[in-house]
Design a binder for these strands. Structure first.
Lengths: 83, 83
DNA sequence: AGACTTTATGGCAAATAAACTATAAATCTC
DNA sequence: GAGATTTATAGTTTATTTGCCATAAAGTCT
């Protein structure tokens, strides 16, 4: 479960993973927060042109939150099965 | 130091705080990653229309990283001074 | 293989982000 | 309070996102 998002692509992967773990498809996810399926698809594929608002909408739909922190050079791996 | 970003507005605040702590102004920050000053201003004010790519550029300029995690209902406060 | 579900891609219209430049407004400094 | 720096706002232009609708492509299941 990758959680660190260092680019639109990796963020897209994180969102896709989270969505699947919730057993949702793109259509259902989008419907929760008024985003159409093609847009969800593009975000998950890592479109850097995605608008910030769309990201926060998706985070809400997937019950996720964003944390901003200093770059951890060391901490490369994600200690993690905690979700 | 708020680090949890739950909306474009709070993300803007986090970025502004981080920028100031690095002793940078909007012009200098933007120059690091090819974003003009007015755009930095808008992001810090919380424009939801900001593009994701612009956010990652700014995170890079400020040496920050984004982490996505399950929403923590409890963890309201930010245990703090570690940055 | 065939039917069904899910995801990806395309065109169109409306809305808007960002660069650029300029300038107004706010903030700091002496 | 004047002067300098920093931030906010505005107009114009270009490029792009998104919703909408349709459809193609890929994946799943019996």
């Amino acid at each position: 479960m990758i959680r660190k998002a260092i680019s639109p692509e990796s963020l897209g992967s994180v969102l896709r993973e989270a969505r699947k773990q919730k057993g949702l498809n793109q259509t259902a996810t989008g419907r929760l927060v008024d985003i159409d399926q093609p847009t969800v698809s593009k975000v998950e594929q890592g479109s850097g042109g995605t608008q910030l608002d769309t990201i926060f909408r998706l985070l809400a739909a997937l019950e996720l939150e964003m944390v901003i922190q200093p770059r951890s050079k060391t901490d490369v791996k994600n200690e993690g099965d905690n979700w």
